[in-house]
Amino acid sequence: MIALSNMSRLQVSTETLLLFIRVYESKGKEFFYDELFNKDKDVFLKKTIESNVFYIGKLLNMPLTDARLKLIAKKKLVAKNKAETLMINIKHALSSIQKFPKDFELFPNEFDNLARMLSKDNEPIKFRVTEGKPDGTLFSSKKTISLKEHLELLIKEYNTQQKTKQYELLQLITNFYIDYVNASVFSSHNELIAYIILYAFLLRDFNVFKYVSFFEYFYKQQEQYKLALNQANYYYNTGYPNTDLLSKFIMDILNNAYDHVNDFAREYSFEKKLNKSDNIEATIRNGKEIFSKEDIRLAHPTVSLITIDRTLKRLKDEGLIQPLGKGRSSKWQRIDESKRQNGRQLDIFQFTD
């Protein structure tokens, strides 16, 4: 509890203050996003879960190919090995958080239940035990102590600091996270559990992650995370861990996520007024010459696969595109206007013998 119990050491720089202001200004638009995206909320839910599962697998360096990770993220599969069993359990955990973000509460049982979910049909994850002297005196007898008790004290300290209302929420979360990571309360997968708890914390209070993948941003900025974690841990045992970089890391993710959703909201509002098939056609006409159906799906996440397939067939029949290969990994090629004319139309005044 070194970080949480020394919250008074924190000093907020001008740069950090500006980042906080930007985050909370963006957070103020969440009601607008919820109303705008309400019709397609199930589409966003499915897409975000899939992306989170894939990128947390990448973050953990799971011994699985990208193709296999994507299949686990998208479909119900029977696990072939322990790594796949763990990924399926992770998917269940992330799905629960994504579907019921406001239900997360900071109780030891939440951690215990998460550990049980992750260890289903796999190696059990249990609270570690250690030997110590409960009263700390020289002549008292040693006793086996479960680190669940340490977690309870850590949660109690978090709640105490929160009640003072002296500290900003993200700073509280950051300092709790550092204390939790250093405690290593479970027998295994402490890093994984820390990631998921951090995500549950953030999704509960910042619903931007209902629409974009938290772990995609985390994975792409993991070098910044490693640097921030090393800085915090370097001074941890002195009682004054420097958590500034970790707070900035979380705020950077939040600001990038809000920027993405804000840009997408403008496009989404425009799309609602257009025919979806016409909008897909515009993307193809103005996009890459060679593309895949997955590229179209990513550009139009709220459009059904049926609509995408129908549009591709129509454009093929019209001679705008042509398939390159067959199967799931096949691609499409846009046919330039000049080539279409040369291949399909004669000059009406062409002289022939």
Rank of each mutant, 00 (worst) to 15 (best):
T164F: 10
K163G: 15
T164V: 07
S141L: 14
E149T: 13
N207M: 12
N159V: 07
V185P: 12
Y211T: 01
F186N: 04
N182I: 00
S213V: 12
I145L: 11
E157K: 07
I193P: 02
D205R: 05
I197H: 00
T174F: 02
E191L: 03
E149H: 12
A183W: 00
L153R: 13
L138Q: 05
F186V: 02
E149M: 09
Q162R: 12
I155R: 02
T137S: 15
L138I: 10
K163R: 10
I178K: 02
Y211D: 07
T144I: 12
E216Q: 09
Y199R: 07
V212A: 08
E152N: 07
F201A: 00
D179R: 04
Y211M: 09
L151Q: 04
K163S: 15
I173L: 07
S146I: 12
K163V: 05
I193V: 11
Y177W: 05
F214N: 03
Y199S: 08
Q166W: 00
L153S: 13
I145F: 06
T144G: 00
A200G: 02
Y195D: 08
Q166F: 08
Y177P: 00
L203K: 13
S188V: 03
F206I: 05
H150R: 10
L147W: 12
F206E: 01
Y167C: 14
S187Q: 01
L198A: 12
L198E: 07
S184M: 14
A183H: 04
L154P: 09
Y180F: 15
L151E: 03
N190P: 11
E168G: 10
E191V: 05
L154S: 15
Y158A: 14
E216W: 01
Q162A: 15
F176S: 04
F186G: 00
L138C: 00
R204H: 11
L202G: 02
L203Q: 08
L192K: 03
K165Q: 14
F209I: 06
Q166T: 00
F214P: 00
E168F: 04
K156Q: 14
F214Q: 06
Y177V: 02
K143D: 08
F176E: 04
E191P: 05
A200D: 02
F186D: 01
E168A: 06
I145R: 09
L169T: 10
T174D: 06
T164M: 08
A183S: 11
K156H: 09
Q162W: 04
N207S: 15
Q166I: 00
V208A: 12
F214C: 05
L151A: 06
Y158S: 13
L203F: 14
D205T: 10
Q161M: 12
D205V: 05
L192E: 02
K163H: 15
L154M: 15
